[in-house]
Each structure stands twice: as structure tokens, then as C-alpha cells.
Amino acid sequence: MPQFDFANVFLPQLVWLAIFFAVLYFAVVLPTLPKLGRTMQAREDQVTGDLDAAEAAKASADKLAADYDAGVAEAQESARAALNAAHAKATKSLETKLAKADAKLAERVAAAEAELTEARTKALGEVEAIAADVASDLVEQLTGKRPTAADAAKAARAVAG
């Protein structure tokens, strides 16, 4: 194997390896990689910062949403209260109006009833007078003698009974 021919292959390879590796490390890797490492670090920092900012923005958005929900709930509550109050007020005024109307109506009914009773009493009285009159007429024609008004009224009242 040529690899074990150390007398001929060891030193030249080792020396050129040292030269090329030194060039690689000092002239290629060291001027380039740390620069790239800084860029990667900057990116990482920016991503972390952006994530933090996004998280903060989300928190504030959540707070806004919660505030909004609370405001809506409050407005709904007050609207419901106002509605209930208006409802109660309307019911109450309707009730008073109804009571008033009922009272008026009852008054009128009572008046009408009184009038009716009066008219009936009056009418009955008149009917009695007519009956007495007719009875007197009948008695006069039958007997030729007219009974007294008091007797006629008495008889008529007895018949009406």
C-alpha cells in the first residue's frame, strides 16, 4: 500500500496539509464564519423580539376584546333595565287609566240603573192609575154608579197584588 511508504509520502503530505489547513483556518474560516455567526445571532434576536412584540400585541388585542365584551354586556344590561322600567311604567299607567275608566263606567251604570228604577216606578204608578180609571169606567157602565177614586185605586192595587 502506498499509504505505508512513510519515507516518501509522510513529510510532503503533512507539510502541505499544514499549509493548506492553516490557510483554510486563518484566511478562509476566521474571516467568514464569525461574520455569519453575528448575522445568525442578529436574526435570532430579531425573531425573538418580533415574537415578543407579537405576544404583547396579542395581549393588548385580547384586553381590547375583553373590554369590548364587557362594554357590550354592560350596555345590554342597562338596555334591559331601561326596557323593564318602561314596561313597568306603561303597565302602571294603563292600570290607573283602566281603574279610572272602570270607576266612570260604574258611575254611569249606577246612574242609568237609578234612572231606570225611577222610570219603572213612575210607569207602574201610571199603570195603576189607568187600571183604576178603567176599572171605574167598567164599574160605572155595569152598575151606573161610579166608585170613588180611592176604592178604585185600592181594588186595582189588590189585583196587581
Binding site: L11, P12, W16, F20, L24, V28, V29, K35, T39
Partner: peptide
């Protein structure tokens, strides 16, 4: 300390790595 084909291929490897690194980090961007 002869320059051999082994040295040549180490030099080619160095050149390839150099191109890779220098082009890749010429203008590092986020």
C-alpha cells in the same frame, strides 16, 4: 516537500471550501 497530487487535491478542496464560504458570506443578510 514536493508538491504532489495529494497536495493538489488538498488545494482543490481548499479552493472549493473557499468558494463555498466566501460566496456564502459575501453579504450576510437576515
Amino acid at each position: 516537500l514536493s508538491f504532489t497530487n495529494s497536495s493538489l487535491w488538498m488545494a482543490i478542496a481548499l479552493a472549493a471550501v473557499s468558494i463555498f464560504l466566501f460566496v456564502g458570506t459575501a453579504r450576510p443578510q437576515l
